[in-house]
């Protein structure tokens, strides 16, 4: 599954880990995150994320 990076703070969403503090189970792809999910580090919204490359 693809990782996504927050363009604001650099946090990487790793689907293998999920976002346990935000109630997101491990194994949840980025696309399946709820629309109101925000970056656990900086609070940026989903549209501030880009697929990690390289």
């Amino acid at each position: 599954m693809k990782k996504y990076v927050c363009l604001v703070c650099g946090y990487v969403y790793d689907p293998a880990v999920g976002d346990p503090d935000g109630g997101i189970a491990a194994g949840t792809p980025f696309e399946d995150l709820p629309d109101d999910w925000v970056c656990p580090v900086c609070g940026a919204s989903k549209d501030q994320f880009e697929e990690e490359t390289g």
């Binding site: 703070c9 580090v41 900086c42 609070g43």
Partner: peptide, 9 residues
């Protein structure tokens, strides 16, 4: 008032 990333988390 939370102001995350303005300019630190």
């Amino acid at each position: 008032v939370e102001t995350k990333m303005l300019h630190w988390p």
